[in-house]
Design a protein around this nucleic acid. Structure first.
Length: 554
DNA sequence: CACCCCCGCGCG
DNA sequence: AAAGCGCGCGGGGGTG
């Protein structure tokens, strides 16, 4: 479909993507048309931008099964096939929650849209993308990736619409207990102000603003502390009476700035009726991270601190099904590399303990440090020391990340399991490498080039694992959404309300919660089968059925 | 005043 | 001051 200037053109395509029929209608009539087609044949809707259409459908209470978001797909395909010609599309893009109001001009533009045949443009883009997919080395994987990416866009729009159930009263209680009563705008809450005074006294700096790193560093050094930064990592190493209150101050100031009363007023909408909780509407950005993870564009949904998770509360009679995938990245690496040894270590709920049992590490923490070091490219410290043993024990798995690192160091691109492709290093990187290869390049220039080469190698090393885990998580979400839709009509349907890379929360009517927990687990297993074929690697989950997010311990 | 960068810290 | 990846956000501090 093509949306332009308050009207929409819908092309009905055959299996082999020929136009069977077309219709034009005002945007206001779209929800009804979609609902009818959805009930009749559940088509895959192809549109340029989910944010342009989904909010409208959701507001009308219409839920669809499948879509293709051409904007997101195009980004993936352009990275994967940069040599192909990708004519600039003239698509209006929409940020979620910011539907532009119709203007007087829209009435005039309608006529243009009609003769312009924008439906044809959208169709042309769709066909171009499908050709690129068909010509890919693994078309099936690409199709799965594009479907999963699009399902993600749909889910993000639904989560934004439905909101995460929240209790402003509980949130306020946490803030008041930590910081003191809510102050006038711009003023420090009482407990925070008192702590600032203590710090000024201990540092003998009467006018000090502890929120200013520059002022604070100067005051710390004048008081004789040997620090070069005010970060808490550095402060922890120092023995001085000001350290403890200062760390406490930083913790509290952070809570106030990031998730204080101002945040609550901006992002949490009070409940419409007493039978429901309030709602936090997180703005997710599917495809917002280079590796394929989601980003956020406001509200900081991906940084919700543990401190305030008690405010996430199910509606009366409903429950939260909280589930997180255990060690999803090392397991994804085991699956994509076909490393049977690592798969074996992951048999059971704790892969890190499996590494200990296999004799790779002396303790669980040591195993975790070693494995994360392999995924991130650690060279020094404990992780660096443990690397050789990891490489000897799991040669297939470690070869995948090592090769990705070498490719990145040479300036090449790498791909995830389903084909998401990394970007080329920036021009400045290329220039640094070129400068270092000139005869007579100085040692400093060479060192800088080597350093940036290694830096890029760590990026590509992590890209293949983080990106593959992200697409597994997307397929997990999509499969879970599909299954939840079968359980009940929209009003009483368990629905996704939160997603955090490898963790989901489903808001479910109480009686369905146990079944939902089973579906969450089954969905991840099914997603892994879709990606990697017959199961060799297990993807276990920790699940909890709770009323408050804070009660899900993990 | 708007804009940008840096710092520091929250999350995985 | 993180050793080692990916992000967003708010405050300070500077610039135009």
């Amino acid at each position: 479909m093509a949306v332009q200037g308050g009207r929409v053109e819908v092309l009905d395509l055959t299996e082999d993507r020929r136009v069977r029929s077309r219709s034009q209608l005002p945007l206001a009539g779209l929800a009804r048309l979609v609902a009818e087609r959805e009930a009749a044949e559940a088509p895959r809707w192809v549109w340029t931008d989910t944010n342009q259409v989904a909010p409208l459908l959701l507001a009308a209470g219409v839920r669809i099964g499948r879509c293709l978001d051409l904007r997101l797909c195009r980004t993936i395909l352009q990275h994967a096939f940069p040599d192909q010609s990708w004519p600039e599309p003239h698509w209006p893009t929409a940020a979620i929650g910011q539907q532009p109001e119709p203007t007087l001009l829209d009435g005039l533009l309608d006529e243009d849209a009609a003769v312009d045949g924008s439906g044809e443009q959208v169709l042309a883009e769709h066909l171009r993308q499908q050709e690129a997919v068909a010509a890919a080395p693994s078309p099936g994987r690409f199709r799965l990736l594009l479907a999963a990416e699009s399902a993600g866009a749909l889910i993000a729009a639904e989560i934004y619409h439905d909101g995460l159930p929240w209790d402003r009263r509980v949130h306020d209680q946490i803030l008041t207990a930590e910081l003191g009563q809510r102050p006038a705008p711009g003023a420090r809450p009482q407990r925070l102000a008192a702590l600032a005074e203590v710090i000024r006294g201990l540092l003998e700096a009467p006018g000090l603003n502890p929120d200013s790193p520059v002022e604070l560093l100067r005051a710390l050094r004048r008081a004789g502390l040997d620090v070069t930064t005010t970060s808490k990592w550095a402060l922890r190493e120092v023995d001085h009476p000001v350290v403890q209150p200062l760390l406490e101050y930083k913790r509290m100031a952070r809570l106030l700035a990031a998730n204080g009363w101002a945040w609550m007023d901006a992002w949490v909408v009070p409940a419409a009726d007493p039978g429901r909780k309030d709602r936090f509407h997180p703005e997710y950005v599917p495809g917002g991270v280079i590796t394929g993870r989601w980003a956020t564009s406001g509200g900081g949904a991906l940084q919700l601190p543990k401190q305030i998770r008690a405010a996430v509360q199910a509606d009366p009679g409903w429950r939260l099904v909280v589930a997180d995938a255990a060690q999803i990245e090392p397991r994804a690496l085991a699956a994509m590399s076909g490393d049977r040894g690592l798969a074996e270590a992951g048999r059971g709920s704790d892969l890190y303990q499996g590494l200990v049992d296999a004799g790779v590490a002396g303790s669980r923490n040591e195993a975790k440090v070693a494995m994360l070091g392999a995924l991130y490219g650690a060279t020094t410290g404990a992780a660096g020391l443990l690397m050789p043993r990891l490489m000897r024990t799991y040669p297939q798995a470690t070869r995948v990340v090592e090769e990705a690192a070498r490719t990145g160091e040479r300036g090449g691109v790498v791909r995830t399991w389903l084909g998401r492709t990394s970007t080329l290093p920036p021009a400045s990187w290329q220039e640094a490498q070129a400068a270092a290869s000139q005869p007579g390049a100085s040692a400093a220039v060479e060192a800088r080039a080597r350093q940036s080469a290694r830096d890029w190698g760590r990026f590509t090393r992590n890209f293949v694992v983080q990106g593959t885990a992200a697409e597994l998580a997307l397929c997990w979400l999509a499969e879970l959404r599909r299954r939840l839709a079968l359980l009940a009509e929209v009003d009483q349907r368990p629905h996704l309300v939160y997603f955090l890379h490898d963790e989901v929360i489903v808001h479910s009517p109480g009686p369905l919660a146990e079944q939902v927990a089973d579906e969450v687990c089954a969905s991840l297993t099914e997603a892994a089968r879709l990606l990697f074929g017959q199961p060799r690697v297990e993807f276990p989950l920790q699940t909890a059925i709770v009323s408050s997010y804070a009660d899900a311990e993990h």
